[in-house]
Amino acid sequence: MKDPMKDIKKSLDATVFKNPQFTEKNKNAVFQEIHKPKKVYLLPTLVGGLLITVMASAGIYFASEKLGSESPIATEPNGPITTEIPPNHGQEGMQANPVYAAKNENEVSMLDAETAYELCVDALTDYYNAIWNGTDIDLDQFIGNENLKQYMQTKVESEYKKYGSLDSKVERLEIGDWEVKFSDDEKGGYLYLEVPVAIQKHYGGGYGEGTEFLLRNIDGKLAIVDWYTGGKDTYDYVVRGDQQKIDDPDIWNDSEWVKKFKSVTGLFDFEQKVYDRFMLTHDVNELSGLEPISIAKLYVYASYHQDFETVYALYTDREDRILWSKEEDETIPLSDRGTPEQILQTFRNIEKGAFVQTGEYEGYIEFYPNGDREEKSGFSLIQNEEGIWQVAFLPVQ
Rank of each mutant, 00 (worst) to 15 (best):
E171C: 14
E171H: 10
E171L: 15
E171G: 15
R172V: 04
R172P: 10
L173K: 12
L173D: 06
L173R: 06
E174F: 12
E174T: 01
E174K: 10
E174H: 12
I175C: 02
I175L: 03
G176H: 05
G176V: 07
G176E: 04
G176R: 02
G176P: 03
D177A: 13
D177M: 06
W178S: 12
W178H: 07
W178A: 15
W178N: 13
E179H: 03
E179M: 09
E179L: 07
E179C: 08
E179D: 12
E179R: 04
E179N: 11
V180I: 12
V180S: 11
V180E: 05
V180Y: 04
V180Q: 08
V180F: 11
K181L: 03
K181M: 02
K181W: 04
K181S: 10
K181C: 00
F182T: 05
S183L: 10
S183F: 13
D184K: 14
D184W: 02
D184E: 07
D185S: 08
E186Q: 08
E186G: 11
K187F: 01
K187C: 02
K187Q: 04
K187D: 02
K187Y: 05
G188S: 09
G188T: 03
G189C: 02
Y190D: 09
Y190W: 13
Y190S: 09
L191H: 14
L191F: 06
L191K: 07
L191D: 09
Y192W: 06
Y192P: 06
Y192F: 05
L193I: 12
L193A: 08
L193Q: 05
E194S: 15
E194F: 14
E194Y: 13
E194C: 15
E194N: 14
V195K: 02
V195W: 02
V195G: 10
V195E: 07
V195T: 02
P196Q: 01
P196A: 07
P196F: 03
V197I: 13
V197G: 11
V197N: 11
V197C: 15
A198H: 02
A198E: 02
A198N: 06
A198P: 03
I199Y: 04
I199E: 04
I199T: 03
I199S: 01
I199H: 05
Q200T: 06
Q200H: 13
Q200C: 05
K201F: 06
K201N: 01
K201S: 08
K201L: 03
K201I: 04
K201H: 02
H202Y: 04
H202I: 03
H202A: 11
H202W: 00
Y203P: 12
Y203C: 15
Y203A: 14
G204L: 13
G204R: 11
G204S: 12
G204M: 07
G204N: 11
G205L: 01
G205V: 04
G205T: 01
G206L: 00
Y207A: 05
Y207W: 03
Y207D: 03
Y207H: 10
Y207R: 01
Y207P: 07
G208P: 02
E209Q: 13
E209R: 12
E209C: 09
